[in-house]
Computed example of a mutant assay.
Amino acid sequence: MFSEEQLNDLVGRVHRRDLSHIADVFSAGITDSQVLRQARRREENAERAAKAWSYQPPKTLPVTWVDMCIWLFNKLGIRSK
């Protein structure tokens, strides 16, 4: 019923105490293609969530009031001694 790879995956998940959706695999009404589609959907959702949480906004140069004052002083020709 299960390939060796699927059994190893199940054993690894049980060992890690990840029992989510284990019962789905052993349900009588679920076919192998449905199980694979559910697994693929869960992986896609996990990837989307990981991308959302790891989003970094584009890097911009921070402009502070000190930077603006230095620019203004340089523009006006005000130099420190």
Rank of each mutant, 00 (worst) to 15 (best):
G77K: 00
S33T: 09
S27E: 12
A46L: 07
D32H: 10
Q6H: 09
K51L: 13
P58N: 06
N8S: 15
V11D: 10
E47F: 09
E43T: 08
S80N: 04
P58D: 12
L19T: 13
W65T: 09
Y55R: 08
S27T: 11
P57S: 12
L36C: 05
T60G: 04
V63Q: 02
R42A: 03
A52P: 02
M1P: 00
S54C: 01
A39V: 00
S54F: 02
L19K: 03
S27I: 02
D67T: 12
T64V: 00
I30F: 06
A28M: 13
N74K: 04
K59S: 10
Q6L: 06
R17Q: 14
D18G: 06
V35R: 01
E4C: 07
C69W: 13
K75E: 09
Y55M: 05
T60P: 06
Y55K: 08
A46I: 05
R37A: 13
G12Y: 02
D24L: 04
P62R: 09
I78G: 02
L10W: 01
D9T: 06
A39E: 14
S20D: 15
I30H: 05
E43G: 05
A49S: 08
S27D: 15
V66P: 00
I22E: 00
I78F: 03
V14E: 05
S20L: 11
L10H: 02
K81R: 07
A49P: 00
L72Y: 08
E5F: 03
E44Y: 13
E47H: 14
R16M: 13
T60K: 13
Q38R: 10
E5I: 00
E5L: 03
F26Y: 13
Q6R: 12
S20Y: 11
A23Q: 12
N45R: 15
F26N: 03
Q56D: 12
D9V: 04
F73Q: 11
I78T: 03
V66Y: 09
T64S: 06
N8A: 15
V66G: 05
D67M: 08
S33N: 13
L36S: 11
F73K: 06
D32Q: 10
L10C: 01
A39I: 01
R48T: 11
P58S: 00
V25T: 09
R16F: 10
P57F: 05
T60R: 14
R42S: 07
Y55C: 05
S54N: 02
W53P: 02
W53G: 11
H21F: 04
W71P: 00
P58E: 06
Q34A: 14
G77Q: 04
S80F: 09
Q38C: 05
R13I: 02
Y55E: 03
N8I: 13
M1T: 08
Q38M: 12
G77I: 02
R13A: 00
E4T: 07
H15V: 10
Q38P: 02
H15Y: 14
R42T: 01
Y55W: 04
L7W: 11
S54Q: 05
M68D: 07
C69T: 14
T64H: 01
F2L: 15
D9A: 07
K81L: 13
L7G: 04
N74D: 15
